[in-house]
């Protein structure tokens, strides 16, 4: 049975996020940027804020935009096996998936 002694990890992740110069905090974001940021925020319900997964789900933050987009399209067509992602990817147009992939790729991560 997986157990959850993870409060410390959660705190560390939060501190990192608060300290990062994240793309989401740009006050002058354009309407298009704010739109895709809100779409991408939906994904955070499984992949954590800005796609900084704590584990068990793939991290999306700072990944290659083309890799993310290809994965989403392959989920959509059924080429890539999935438990749930094919059902989500089919809810978005190719253009929406492209913009979401680009947004996650733009998230700064410590290397």
């Amino acid at each position: 049975m997986p157990q959850f002694p993870f409060a410390r990890r959660l705190a560390a992740a939060g501190a990192l996020l608060a300290a990062s110069t994240s793309p989401v905090a740009l006050a002058q974001a354009t309407p298009a940027e704010r739109e895709v940021r809100t779409w991408a925020a939906s994904c955070a319900a499984c992949h954590n804020t800005e796609g900084r997964s704590l584990g068990g789900m793939p991290a999306l933050a700072g990944r290659s935009a083309d890799d993310l987009y290809r994965a989403l399209i392959e989920f959509r067509t059924g080429k890539r096996p999935a438990t749930v992602m094919h059902q989500h990817a089919r809810g978005y147009t190719e253009d929406e998936l492209r913009r979401i992939a680009d947004w996650f790729a733009s998230v700064k991560i410590a290397r």
């Binding site: 959850f4 319900a45 992949h47 804020t49 068990g56």
Partner: peptide, 12 residues
């Protein structure tokens, strides 16, 4: 994994 990540998304 969903639970861990959404708790972090909401509260972390």
């Amino acid at each position: 994994a969903w639970a861990r990540n959404i708790w972090a998304d909401a509260l972390g």
